[in-house]
Design a protein around this nucleic acid. Structure first.
Lengths: 184, 184
DNA sequence: CTTGGAATGTCAACAAGGCTGACATAATGT
DNA sequence: ACATTATGTCAGCCTTGTTGACATTCCAAG
């Protein structure tokens, strides 16, 4: 670890101790007050609301929820993925996923194919209708992401992604990068 | 608007049309493929999971959920806020918030004071215990945020915040900045 | 002053979507 | 043959969102 750290603690007019970390990485200094971190936390909260707002609006007319969106998204990203794989990506129980998956199959948005190599596995695919809905949802979400990127600028985008990736849990980061590599 | 835009659409080996936007801001060029946007969307999904993981672990021992965390967070940020104000910030119905608030009051984490000026209003405050729990929760969340910031670097942090702020809905951004100014 | 809205907050009932636990079925591997 | 794995299903619970009905309080028009 090539960074030298120096942690200073001092009192603020606020309501409790506030740790400020000063860190040197090359010539850069990084001051992180609790207040700045709090702002980051709130930014994350409000941004996630905006992030899901457009798909939520589309889905509520269809009697679907965020759970359906997530399933559709990742089946689209990895056509032919198994139930188990989806479970790991989404981080929910099989009973919970199964309920969502069942409605999607009943409504003709998702197809299940028995595995050729291992016939216990069910490989999941979007049907034509499923892809259509996925396109509607992700178009809306991409539009918002694109606007945000455009407004913030290209340098900001790089930083945005770096912080997000650093914020994931290690297993999540593995799932995330495997998805990225799969797509190339 | 000082930016010149050029939108090119072309076909990819993938599965459907992929719009690439090329945008000039000064000397910067910003290429945004659908694939890059998709990665941003997934990064947001996985990062939010990490973002809430630590508080969730703490809360599940206490029979509380994320809703309680949110309420505690914003009551702490704005002591004396009214139920209505909290409603606007959290974006839920008053009935839903009320249930959470009731348990917090019953458990002695939150106090309600009838408004002096308008006695219909209930002003909300954290008790000693409430502040203690808030500290536990936000310490955990700040630690993750701090690690992510540290790992990503100071330039990345600026970009992270810029993109998040651009991703909020306008009303949310207002709530967000008003909180920031209130704290100064 | 009275009275009818409007604003604020509470209670009750319900739905979505998480969870656990138990169990069935089919396929695989040893 | 037997244990293991992948999946599906049922029952029941919890959190957290929803709507509807209602009580309280304030304010303004008559």
């Amino acid at each position: 670890m090539s960074l030298k750290k120096c942690v200073c603690v001092f009192h603020r007019a606020w309501d409790r101790m506030d740790a400020t970390m000063v860190e040197t990485t090359g010539e850069k200094l990084l001051y992180l007050t609790d207040e700045q971190l709090r702002q980051g936390i709130e930014a994350m909260f409000f941004a996630y609301r905006g992030f899901t707002a457009d798909p939520d609006r589309i889905l509520q007319d269809l009697a679907y929820g965020r759970a359906h969106h997530r399933a559709i998204h990742f089946i689209n990203a990895q056509p032919g993925t198994t139930v188990n794989n989806l479970l790991n990506i989404l981080g929910v129980t099989k009973q919970s996923l199964n309920r969502v998956l069942r409605t999607l199959v009943e409504d003709g948005l998702v197809e299940q194919q028995v595995g050729r190599k291992d016939r216990r596995e069910r490989h999941l695919f979007l049907t034509e209708d499923g892809r259509a809905l996925e396109a509607r949802l992700s178009d809306a979400q991409r539009a918002r992401m694109r606007d945000a990127y455009r407004h913030a600028g290209s340098d900001a985008v790089v930083g945005f992604r770096r912080v997000l990736e650093a914020m994931m849990d290690p297993e999540m980061r593995r799932a995330y990068t495997s998805l990225r590599e799969g797509k190339e």
